[in-house]
């Protein structure tokens, strides 16, 4: 140990041992690093803000009640998104009706009945693999299985086929969020239920599930909002470029082999060379983003309420 003389260096202390800390140089690096990381964050936010502002300024002028309620047209000033909007709602219904029971049921099965079993492990690995598969591949699955093999049931390239395809796409997300929500319910609640002589299912249904439902709902809404923004898979399944009529909300309507949805409509309008169509594409984007914003806000509000209750 070197002797220390505090007076040797003003208020600072003398260097001990064989060190050259060079603090000033290190602080300079610190400062640079900090500035760069803030700059990265702000540039990302700025670009995304420019995107939104650009879309809003292009799209708002054309936004009107007529635009919302009119069918598409070959003339941009007459075109509207009513069929596409209803198509999206129909897709949402089919996707939700098939994905929610499947996803929540699977989640309950894996978390409450098959925990640590070999089957659960296989399904777990399978699910994380599925999560990385590009959505367009799901489109090809839907095209082959729902639109072609099961054509007698689905009506071919229909809302049915597209909705089921999207359901498979978001199934992993719903399963994972169901499991996470169930995992968050303390085990003591299960023990208490079982100790009273209830079966596992009674315990889950009466005691565990009600506590997990806000979390499950949040995950499900986020998954559904992802589904209705998806474009690639439903193009592949066969959304048509020009559908001037709104879908009929019936089994027959959903089996109609011609349908459209908002993202498809947007895609088509962007693809046109005329600038007037670009402007209404922006308007349609605003409508789509509004729908997504409502869904996401609901999910976040639910999550916050859920977290503050715990």
């Amino acid at each position: 140990m070197n002797p220390i003389d505090p007076q040797a260096q003003g208020l600072g202390l003398p260097e001990t041992g064989n060190f050259k800390p060079q603090l000033e140089r290190r602080y300079k690096f610190d400062q640079i690093f900090k500035i760069i990381s803030w700059a990265a964050t702000f540039s990302a936010i700025a670009v995304l803000a420019i995107l939104l502002i650009g879309v809003l300024s292009e799209g708002i002028p054309k936004l009107s009640l007529e635009f919302l309620t009119a069918p598409p047209s070959r003339k941009a000033e007459q075109a509207g998104i009513w069929p596409a909007f209803l198509g999206t709602i129909a897709l949402l219904l089919i996707t939700a009706a098939s994905a929610i029971p499947l996803g929540v049921g699977t989640g309950i099965f894996l978390q409450e009945f098959a925990q640590d079993s070999k089957l659960a492990k296989v399904i777990e690995i399978n699910i994380s693999n599925l999560a990385a598969v590009p959505s367009i591949i799901y489109g090809m699955l839907g095209l082959f299985v729902f639109a072609r093999l099961l054509e007698p049931m689905t009506g071919g390239r229909s809302i049915f086929s597209a909705g089921l395809t999207l359901a498979l796409l978001i199934l992993p997300v719903i399963i994972v969020s169901t499991r996470e929500s169930l995992k968050a319910v303390p085990d003591s609640i299960r023990m208490a239920g079982m100790a009273l002589g209830a079966t596992r299912w009674q315990t889950v249904r009466i005691h565990v599930l009600p506590l997990a439902i806000p979390g499950i709902l949040t995950g499900t809404i986020l998954a559904l909002s992802r589904a209705i923004g998806e474009t690639a898979p439903i193009i592949v399944v066969g959304a048509a470029a020009f559908v001037p009529f709104a879908p009929e909300f019936s089994v027959e309507g959903f089996r109609e082999p011609a349908f459209t949805a908002m993202p498809i409509q947007i895609f088509n309008w962007i693809s046109r060379p005329q600038e007037e169509f670009h402007a209404i594409a922006a308007s349609a984007i605003i409508v789509l983003l509004m729908v997504l914003l409502v869904m996401n806000t609901t999910a976040i509000v639910l999550r916050n309420r859920f977290q503050s209750n715990r």
Partner: peptide
């Protein structure tokens, strides 16, 4: 629910066999 769980496995099998 066990049958539901098989749907996700079937999806993988479906994707692979379709392709």
């Amino acid at each position: 629910f066990g049958a539901f769980a098989m749907v996700s496995v079937a999806t993988t099998i479906g994707i692979i066999s379709t392709l």
